[in-house]
Computed example of a mutant assay.
Amino acid sequence: MMEFFAEHGNELVNKTWEHFYISLAAMLLGVLVAVPMGIILSRVPKFADRFISFIGILQTIPSLAILAFFIPIVGIGKIPAIIALFIYSLLPILRNTYIGIRDVDKGVVEAGKGMGMSNWQAIVKMELPLSIPVIMAGIRLSTVYLIGWAALAAFIGGGGLGDFIFDGLNLYKPSLILAGTIPATVLAVIADRSLAILENSLTPNALSESQEAA
């Protein structure tokens, strides 16, 4: 163990950072695109089911095929890996945002509008806070998946912990496979718990308690 860290310690730190960076970039892009899109789709439910089904079809395409598809367009490296992972992040976040917003009690929303809230204010102050648990469930699920799938970035020179895994498979070295697998698992657990804490802090009960304490 000590010999491994002496030989690969710096590389392990760099690969772990690359893995985290690729996963985080894809997840943030997914949130920035899927959450607003889910809100819009909640206003057009007839179109929403077809569109979400289409995104679901994209999820069935093998990840390696998507990675290979973007190579002629954006080359190799981290960019095509982030784009491919971004596509895979969309469905859980989009579907949960749509369901969360759709299932908010319409009576509560109408009461807010009756008090003078605009549509935008109703979304920001009522619909989004009330649907946070459902939206965050989609983000957490997507994040854990992305951290696992980010290992495939190694196939196209994107770096990350997948380099260790595939080197270990090619060289028949279990220590390299473990060096890629264990940190990725730890990253997924830390990300999930961190998002759970963020979810708790953003729920209406937590927000009201913090406001009362202030």
Rank of each mutant, 00 (worst) to 15 (best):
S131Y: 03
F86W: 06
Y145I: 08
F47M: 09
P72W: 06
V144R: 06
L130C: 13
M126Y: 15
M126D: 08
G158H: 00
I135W: 08
G157H: 02
A122R: 14
G157T: 11
L171F: 12
K113A: 06
S63D: 03
G148P: 12
S53F: 11
A65F: 05
I82M: 01
I66D: 01
I76G: 01
L90A: 07
I71Y: 04
A68E: 03
I135E: 04
Y172C: 07
Y98S: 04
I135F: 08
N119H: 08
L128K: 05
F164S: 10
R50T: 13
Y172H: 09
I87L: 15
L94P: 00
S142V: 03
K46Q: 08
G160M: 02
G160H: 12
F155I: 14
W120N: 14
I139Y: 03
G168V: 11
S63H: 08
I79V: 11
E127D: 13
M115G: 06
L64F: 14
R95E: 03
P92L: 01
L94M: 00
D49Y: 08
Y88L: 03
K78Q: 09
R102G: 05
A137D: 14
F155W: 06
I83M: 03
M117R: 08
Q121G: 14
S118C: 13
W120S: 15
D167A: 14
A122S: 14
V134R: 13
A68T: 10
A150F: 07
S89H: 00
F47A: 05
L130S: 11
A137S: 15
Q59P: 04
S142M: 03
E110G: 10
L85E: 03
I165S: 12
Y145H: 13
L146Q: 08
R95K: 12
Y145F: 14
E127W: 11
V109A: 07
E127L: 09
K78N: 02
I61E: 03
G56D: 05
P133L: 09
M126G: 10
V108L: 15
Q59I: 05
G114K: 12
R95P: 02
G159N: 08
P133G: 15
V134A: 14
T60I: 04
N170D: 15
G107Q: 05
F155V: 13
P62A: 12
I83W: 01
Q59R: 10
M126I: 15
I55Q: 01
W120M: 15
F155G: 08
F69N: 05
I135L: 06
I156E: 06
F47P: 00
G75E: 02
A151S: 14
L141A: 15
S118G: 13
S63T: 13
T97L: 04
A137L: 14
I82W: 02
F47Q: 01
I83T: 03
I99N: 02
K106M: 05
A68Q: 00
F166V: 15
I93L: 00
V134I: 15
A111P: 08
L91M: 07
G162S: 10
P72D: 01
K106G: 13
G77H: 05
I79N: 07
D167Q: 11
L169P: 07
I61R: 05
V109L: 13
I139M: 10
L58A: 06
